[in-house]
Design a protein around this nucleic acid. Structure first.
Lengths: 389, 389
DNA sequence: AGAGTTTCGCTACGGTCTTGCTGAAGTCTA
DNA sequence: TAGACTTCAGCAAGACCGTAGCGAAACTCT
């Protein structure tokens, strides 16, 4: 109650806020004239003019001198956000694969790395593969170490505040490693480690099927089952980073739900357990009764946990993601029926369309958020630098 | 992406922000000198001086001229937030009672009304009783209608955005009434209706046992069982206002959990069902095996829903409220054991100490939040008024 | 080539915050 | 009791920011 109040706003901070406002008006838009920016930000033209000049001199924006344009009147100089001022990386460290994405500050992906990893690989082997994937990102895009502004890695299992997965993880031996420490020693930028379901949820809100929603329950349906929560537009981690782990409750049959698919009678013994689910779905689609029963039982078990999350949070949208979301045509409708039976108010249910890149995309988004933070703080230095000149 | 950006900050808004900052530095603190306010807000003394003068001229603050002080140096004039500039009301409309609280803008309760209502009362009777309770608040405190800045009412059952409880409520006939429309027609101030568990959760964070926590699961344990969620310091309503209604899931035995206490063998038939729980708790405390079994079974059922919420949200604290929280000595320890069995990470569990005023207190807090909003918007008019003089 | 239109660059003006200084009102000490 | 010391109140100057408005420049259309 008696603590200091940080809202002490002076003129420098006002300038900072307005600079940020201009940057936001630049980003994600085509090259803009000063007048356009002024109307978008609500600021006056001279203010925007001054700010853009500072932004250009600091390397945040580039000028596009007018070419022969088609409109009447003097053609306006156009400014563009300099997305190449920095780059970010998002990596998905899965059981079978490592997928890395490099993007510029606009979020445009400029490089993709995909590597296979043995499911039973040692943590050291997996870390080394991760390291090589990141190194590949650097060499292929000709990045200097200082060009990387943030690095986010997605792993399976609840991640605590320090980036470790001490409670539980299906990655063998991973609970003993400290990936944040490993990576911060190698790369001179902020490093984050986050749970894969949470990242996939972030991706769905960024570029997926839930861009319009602020309250989202993301359900990862695959050989593992998990959940990620977005409430009020921001990712919920929970006090210990274990939010969404409803599957740990025995009454919720998420741990054993995929076994209905794996143990479906009639499946050929020759195919691997991982491919068995795909076989069940295609066979069920063809009309096989055993396969349809297996799917029904799977959805019934999946729905219990989903219903618990829906009742607890009352989201706007439930997003079905993970490997099984490719068979959403078989899952969505019975899942909706089950939720109608179990819940008070049934939210919209949508199937993910991001495929297996969702976790890496979410990691990218988190890295971009970190980059935004950095832009905000260095925007202040840009101000004071301009003041001296 | 191309929408207008609202962060266009000009000098008037800066002044507004700083005025608000000074108001916040005044509120909840003892009468303060200008120097103290300057250090608290981070602004300079002349700025604070100017703003306080405006605040005093607008009636937001009062001056305390220095009396003979004990410190060295010239004694400072002190400013105090004028909490009597407005009042707010919070009401708990329960099954058995209606409890109303009146408070000034500092949140200091100046009047309390308590009325009994028959559990089976018609909605019209209940509304009329609510109306009389509010009228009593006005007459006893000699308030003018314009002195009331906000009115919040807590009811049982999930409340939608319009303040109605169409999904479900134990108040007979209440799902058909529109309390917001009823009250806005009578009182010239914003009116809010909110779920009782959510309000109780807010109260625990405001004046209760969870003041230090930002992520709270509040469990109402009484003849009814419910939950309220606070995440990141703000109340979670859910997209349709039905967040926390985990009790609707049949696998969670919250609906039937209290029956273990009601149907405890050995209880005298003469006492009412409502008092039976109290009898069971006292008897269990005395060592009766049947009563202890009933309590154990009750806690086991209570824990399933609590575990679902804990696993879903990973809160910092679980607060046990409701009528049964008076018997927390019997509940807390077995509840902790059960959660340890069911959850990945067990949060702290604390028992509420607010008694049966928690819902009304939470309603008061929501009214105060609305009052803060109004202060922010009228603070702008105070600025422009001062500019003209 | 001239008129019309739109943008750019520049200057003046009003508002806000900070810094620095002077006088005022107390307390402490000799 | 008088002087020194401390702290507060008020004023003035300076710096900074955003807004308003004007003339000049550049391009298109007739």
């Amino acid at each position: 109650m008696t603590g200091p109040i940080t809202t002490g706003t002076d003129l420098a901070r006002l300038r900072e806020l307005n600079s940020l406002s201009v940057v936001r008006a630049l980003r994600g838009n085509p090259p803009s004239t000063v007048t356009e920016l002024a109307s978008r930000t609500g600021l006056s033209r001279p203010s925007v003019d001054l700010i853009t000049q500072i932004l250009v001199s600091e390397g945040w924006a580039t000028v596009i001198e007018p070419t022969g344009s088609s409109v009447v009147g003097r053609p306006a100089r156009r400014y563009q956000f300099n997305a190449a001022a920095g780059y970010v990386i998002g990596v998905d460290v899965g059981v079978h694969k490592i997928l890395g994405l490099v993007a510029d500050l606009d979020g445009t992906v400029v490089h993709t790395v995909r590597r296979q990893v043995a499911p039973d690989a040692d943590p050291q082997v997996r870390l080394a593969a991760l390291d090589r994937a990141i190194a590949d990102c650097f060499t292929k895009t000709k990045l200097a170490p200082d060009d990387l502004w943030a690095l986010t890695v997605g792993v399976t299992g609840p991640v605590d505040a320090t980036g470790r997965t001490t409670l539980f993880t299906p990655l063998p031996g991973w609970s003993a490693v400290d990936p944040v420490a490993y990576l911060t020693a190698r790369y001179p930028c902020p490093v984050y480690v986050e749970n894969d379901c949470k990242l996939a949820a972030v991706a769905e809100r960024w570029h997926g099927v839930a861009q319009d929603a602020d309250d989202i329950v993301y359900v990862l349906a695959g050989m593992r089952t998990g959940a990620g929560l977005i409430l009020d537009g921001t990712l919920r981690r929970g006090y210990g980073g274990a939010a969404g782990e409803i599957g740990a409750l025995r009454a919720v049959r998420w741990l054993t739900a995929p076994s209905h698919l794996e143990n479906c009678p009639g499946a050929p013994e020759t195919i691997s357990p991982d491919d068995k689910a795909a076989w069940v779905f295609t066979t069920a689609r063809a009309g096989n009764a055993d396969a349809q029963t297996a799917v029904r039982r799977y959805v019934r078990d999946l729905a219990v946990g989903a219903a618990a999350l829906v009742l607890a949070l009352d989201p706007q949208v439930v997003v079905l993601g993970g490997g099984f979301s490719r068979s959403a045509d078989l899952i969505l409708e019975p899942l909706h029926r089950e939720l109608q039976r179990l819940c008070l108010r049934v939210p919209e249910i949508r199937a993910s369309t991001l495929g297996d890149e969702s976790v890496a995309l979410g990691a990218l988004r988190l890295s971009l958020d970190e980059a935004d933070q950095r832009m905000l703080s260095t925007g202040l230095s840009a101000l004071s630098a301009a003041r001296r000149s």
